[in-house]
């Protein structure tokens, strides 16, 4: 089994407070992993370390056998939970930007996805609603043929119709040679995608395993399990 991502005793502290506390995970290729936990549990910190945006206080992260750096950024497609495009950009500029910087960016796929998401290439990114911005960001992220996709709250603050559209886009564009990490609070909407789940609280993994096995063992959906673990 090819391990795409592994962390070893990964810890991140801010002024003595531990945002991540000795996290050990191994993610093989071809898996969709749900990282679930309440606000402030350390999900985004974990994803940012994997994306190379935060530096661990101690411990180790390896992505495709390499520590976070220029190479890993070329194979990781990261979708943050906030708008991140330059305000001067139009949608078509953001497509050009991704094409210019990422060798694995499939421009044709991006235009198809834009059409699927009903987005106008001439719209300014600042004029987009939260749902539209989320659709654009997801379009850019999924149009890369990355080895690891990191989606931080891809359904955050969007209406149910848009949510369905985003989920369809994830399902249709997911590549089985790659892995995907997804954080969300809307577990019920997205749990059908998960192969594996990690429950995280106070910076530590409190429960993890195969999503289907957990459902059978606990006789609960992942959503119900989430509510029980974090009640």
């Amino acid at each position: 089994m090819d391990i795409l991502l592994s962390t070893e005793n990964l810890t991140k502290s801010y002024l003595g407070k531990k945002a991540l506390n000795v996290v050990n995970i191994e993610i093989p290729k071809g898996k969709v992993v749900g990282i679930l936990g309440p606000n402030g549990s350390g999900k985004t910190t974990l994803l940012k370390i994997i994306a190379g945006l935060l530096k661990p206080s101690s411990g180790k992260v390896l992505i495709d056998g390499k520590e976070p750096g220029v190479y890993t950024k070329s194979i990781v497609a990261y979708l943050p939970d906030t708008p991140f495009l330059y305000k001067w950009m139009k949608i078509k500029d953001s497509i050009d930007f991704y094409r210019d910087f990422y060798k694995d960016f499939d421009e044709e796929k991006a235009w198809e996805l834009l059409k699927f998401m009903n987005l106008d290439p001439d719209s300014k990114v600042t004029s987009l609603s939260k749902g539209m911005a989320e659709k654009l960001n997801l379009t850019l992220t999924l149009s890369r043929k990355a080895k690891l996709y990191i989606l931080d709250e891809p359904l955050g603050g969007v209406d149910p119709t848009t949510r369905e559209k985003i989920l369809d886009a994830i399902i249709q564009n997911y590549n089985e040679d790659s892995s995907m990490l997804i954080t969300t609070h809307l577990v019920n909407d997205i749990e059908r995608l998960f192969d594996e789940v990690l429950f995280i609280a106070n910076g530590s993994i409190v429960l993890s395993g195969n999503a289907e096995e957990l459902r059978l063992k606990e006789e609960k959906s992942i959503d119900e399990l989430y509510r029980e673990v974090f009640k």
Partner: peptide, 8 residues
């Protein structure tokens, strides 16, 4: 910063 510092 998320855009810029994620670039390879």
């Amino acid at each position: 910063a998320y855009l810029l510092f994620s670039l390879p």
